[in-house]
Design a protein around this nucleic acid. Structure first.
Lengths: 105, 105
DNA sequence: CACTATTGCAACCGTTCGGTTGCGTCAAGC
DNA sequence: GCTTGACGCAACCGAACGGTTGCAATAGTG
């Protein structure tokens, strides 16, 4: 689980990657060349980001007609990251309180 | 809010940084040199990470006795990131459903 | 068949990043 | 007053990163 969360953090840490994800969210599934027309960077750069996003599971690649490859959003890994964040915050505060109680007792 | 979330993602994307945070969570507030005895890296490397963590707000630096500087965890920014993740997931699925309904209607 | 459009792969480039080494500085104890 | 710890700053290094350029392969169209 931590591995998935780390990958999600790495993926979401980059602004360009978030822009790509946002474009996919607002415009629906699209191809790399399609995204290249909307964003100010090269298709290959977008392809690299899409590969990374596919490896983290935030996006799935499905082959379409005429050699085109459409990328679709997948929110499952993000929920894992969300759970990880919640557990981490709980762990922090919990241990802190426990430690204070232990020192006070 | 997105800026805070991005900083949290960047901070949590690095394994060493997560180790430092974990050490602070389990052992309570500590100084850079104290952490350097527990981790296999230099004090300066830890100091750099602590600076970054301080800038994101995940950690607060409080001066102690004899020129020592203790670092204490702060979970507030993580909750912001958590909220951001939740909103993002909601946005993804929501827009996807809305688009499908629009195309079907 | 020739042409166009789309994808994938590889090399390259400048910048950032994680980490180390070295040095100057400032507080406390003998 | 001198030594001892602990901190901060700056330079340096190798690796990874974001991005571009160039090229080969492949699927449709005239």
């Amino acid at each position: 689980m931590e591995a998935v969360a780390e990958q999600v953090f790495v993926a979401l840490a980059d602004p360009t990657r978030r822009t790509i994800l946002s474009a996919l969210a607002s415009g629906g599934p699209a191809t790399a060349t399609d995204l290249a027309t909307r964003l100010p960077i090269t298709r290959q750069a977008i392809a690299k980001h899409l590969n990374l996003l596919t490896e983290t599971g935030l996006v799935t690649a499905e082959p379409g007609e005429r050699r085109r490859v459409r990328y679709r959003l997948h929110s499952a890994p993000m929920q894992v990251a969300q759970q990880y964040l919640a557990a981490l915050a709980r762990d922090w505060d919990g241990h802190f309180d426990a430690l204070r109680k232990h020192l006070e007792g």
